[in-house]
Design a protein around this nucleic acid. Structure first.
Length: 200
DNA sequence: CGGCTGATCGTG
DNA sequence: ACGATCAGCCGA
């Protein structure tokens, strides 16, 4: 299995395109001790920057937290939610436009024994199902915020292409407050994939 | 300053 | 259905 990082030009497009095309790609994390955790992306959501009420950058909110999203595409944007969980985003587009793609679920392509020990109550597909769970399982926290997705530690590699007929879109999850943006079909997931989170 | 809130998850 | 739990944002 080749795990070559995607080129920067992959990320420097609009968030919706990046969100669709991230399906099937492999998220890779090299731990300090040398072990490698990987999973195939099966669910994403696009966030469209300042014009998107669901985005942290809505209405031009450019703060210490959102600054990462305002940079060029190709880095990780990681934030803490509900004081409990981390969420991993891929920054898309170009400097100034604050586009990002939330990674919502992975399918494990390596049966990693340690996960069975750490999450004994969850069945295998659930370790990586949901943005908070996948960060916990992949050991991604806020220290990865701003890190290049072509770094030695964290990167995204090519995978199996997903046919467009197998990509389903829907409104995004957990953004009921987002006004006119609540129904924008910016969530994408792989049809019939059990690791996909939440309601369909 | 102090109050409020959330791109979630686990339990009941 | 609800509580956990806190960084960050906002208003004063």
């Amino acid at each position: 299995m080749k795990l070559t990082p995607l080129p920067l030009r992959f990320y420097r497009r609009d968030a919706e395109t990046v969100a669709r095309e991230l399906l099937g790609k492999r998220l890779c994390h090299r731990l300090e001790d040398g072990r490698l955790l990987t999973g195939s992306i099966v669910e994403t959501e696009a966030y469209l920057g300042e014009k998107d009420r669901a985005s942290h950058a809505w209405n031009g909110r450019r703060t210490a937290r959102t600054e990462t999203m305002y940079g060029d595409g190709g880095v990780a944007y990681v934030y803490l939610i509900y004081g409990l969980y981390y969420c991993l985003n891929v920054v898309a587009g170009h400097a100034g436009d604050a586009d990002a793609v939330l990674i919502r679920a992975l399918k494990s392509d390596i049966e990693h024994n340690e996960w069975k020990e750490r999450f004994p109550r969850l069945k295998p597909p659930q370790w990586l199902s949901g943005p908070g769970r996948l960060c916990r399982a992949m050991q991604i926290d806020k220290s990865y915020n701003g890190l290049s997705l072509r770094s030695d530690r964290l990167w995204i590699a090519g995978g199996d292409d997903v046919a467009s007929a197998d990509i389903v879109s829907s409104p995004r999850i957990g953004i009921d407050y987002a006004g006119e943006a609540v129904d924008w079909p910016l969530r994408f997931y792989q049809r019939d994939e059990v690791a996909v989170s939440g309601r369909r």
